[in-house]
Design a binder for these strands. Structure first.
Length: 424
RNA sequence: GGAGAUGUGGCAGAGUGGUCUAUUGCGUCUGAUUCGAAAUCAGAAGUCCGUGCAAGCGGUCCGGGGGUUCGACUCCCUCCAUCUCCGCCA
């Protein structure tokens, strides 16, 4: 959510920011509601003030043993008037808030202008281009090694719910543990295991709701949502709190299963691991002093990159353009790994600075030099496993048809160096 | 799932229809005293909204929401959380 003051003090700034994003919002309507709301608020406050004076008089009369009946009669209508005005005010406030929750964040000045992913800027590329003969497609390769079972997953849940089998399951667990251990032992994160069901307030806090309701799995009976990312529970952990400034930045790393309906995006790019309804991800979440959030942002990207470097994967860092950024982001980097069989770059991490966009929604503040202010929230995948797995499977094939396990994962695989094809 | 209890400021803990502008204690901050500190004394301090150039002024907030009333921390309804006992259970 944007600072509500902006709508009346500097709506041009909002307009310019939204234009850069290509977002269409009826700002005039919002400004008018806000003006109307303030007008009513003023009369409402005056009426309440009158009532306070009147009831005080009644109290005094009663104390002095005087008959207050006529004063009570006179005040009676005031209550009805207040109730009527209050209803109007509440209605306007709700209308304004409902609209405000649908307004995306404004892009940071440094974000490149653009309309689509084609306008994103490649900031750097790490590692060498894949050399040698074209490897097998990860799905065929996985089948040969017996690591995953999509068919049976589809049988029990639907497409997009793979089963990890044997060493495939262990490899998944190895990735998760490797990511988490790196964050908590080298990068200074505190590990969190949050609930994977959250309430509506949490989903609004981080910006998934109200706009993206159709992407979420819901538990209607209990009013709960399955988390699409650990960002939701971990960020909202501190909702309504005033964080100790000395404790900032707070850095959490959390592994959760993530659930996404992916409504509307089903079609191509859906084969194998590239778009799943359920997947594993380790998420980095940070609460920062507003003045330091952009340094923190760069650090987060670095942590995610470090993982890919240890895995030995060829990747690139994109700076997203204004038109391609997510709803709440003020600035965002994407990390993409190269899948040599598909010959495509696959997004494995998205690292965003939300500034105070989420902190306003979730009411997360701190006190700096005696003044209460909203913190900045940041988060980034570190990392999501499925596409990392794709790149690994396609990049680490041995001439004998086996899968060479990257060194950093071997301790988590009981020292195993290679997964060999099943004997026929 | 059943029965009961509780929810008040940073913390502890009073307050059962009207100066509550929320008693008090601890903690915090400022000042006095002191070479400095402790102790002591005096004072200050919250949130959010509106209004104003500003000092300020008005409103709001006692778990959330709603109701009764001229007036609600106080009474009623409802939801949530915590605690105790019972039941069930990985």
């Amino acid at each position: 959510m944007l600072d509500p003051r902006l709508y009346r003090e500097d709506v041009d700034t909002i307009r310019k920011g939204l234009d850069r994003r290509g977002a269409k919002i009826d700002l005039d309507a919002m400004v008018n509601i806000d003006i109307e709301k303030r007008k009513i608020n003023l009369t409402l406050d005056q009426l309440k003030s009158e009532r306070n004076i009147a009831t005080e008089q009644i109290a005094r009369m009663k104390r002095d043993g005087q008959d207050a009946q006529s004063a009570i009669e006179k005040t009676r209508s005031l209550g009805d008037e207040i109730k009527a005005q209050q209803e109007k005010f509440d209605e306007l406030e709700k209308r304004f808030r409902d609209l405000a929750l649908l307004v995306p964040n404004l892009p940071h000045a440094s974000v490149p202008d653009g309309k689509t992913s084609a306008d994103n800027v490649v900031r750097r590329v790490w590692g060498d281009k894949f050399a040698g003969p074209k490897p097998k497609h990860h799905l065929d390769f996985s089948r040969e090694l017996g690591l995953h079972d999509f068919e049976r997953g589809a049988k029990i849940a639907g497409s997009g719910f793979p089963i990890y089998v044997g060493l495939g399951a262990r490899l998944e667990r190895a990735l998760i543990n490797f990511f988490l251990d790196e964050h908590i032992t080298h990068n200074g994160f505190t590990e969190i295991q949050p609930p994977v069901l959250v309430n509506q307030a949490a989903m609004i806090g981080t910006g998934q709701l109200p706009k993206f309701a159709e992407d979420m799995y819901t538990i209607g009976e209990d009013g709960l949502y399955l988390v699409p990312t650990a960002e939701v529970p971990v960020t909202n952990m501190h909702s309504g709190e005033v964080l100790d400034a000395a404790a900032l930045p707070i850095a959490y790393a959390a592994y959760t299963t993530c659930f996404r309906r992916e409504a509307g995006s089903w079609g191509k790019e859906t084969r194998g691991f590239q778009r799943l309804h359920q997947f594993d991800k380790v998420e980095m979440v940070m609460f920062s002093d507003p003045a330091k959030s952009y340094q923190a942002h760069e650090k987060l990207v670095g942590y995610a990159e470090g993982l890919l470097q240890k895995l030995g994967l060829h990747y690139r860092v994109l700076e997203l353009c204004t038109g391609d950024m997510g709803f709440g982001a003020a600035k965002c980097y994407d990390l993409e790994v190269f899948a040599p069989a598909e010959e495509r770059w696959l997004e494995v991490s998205s690292v965003s600075n939300f500034e105070d966009f989420q902190a306003r929604r979730a009411n997360i503040r701190t006190k700096i030099e005696g003044k209460a202010q909203f913190v900045h929230t940041l988060n980034g995948s570190g990392l999501a496993t499925p596409r990392v797995l794709v790149a690994l499977l396609e990049s680490n094939q041995t001439p004998e048809g086996g899968f060479r396990i990257p060194e950093c994962l071997r301790p988590y695989m009981g020292g195993l160096e290679e997964i060999r094809p099943k004997k026929k």
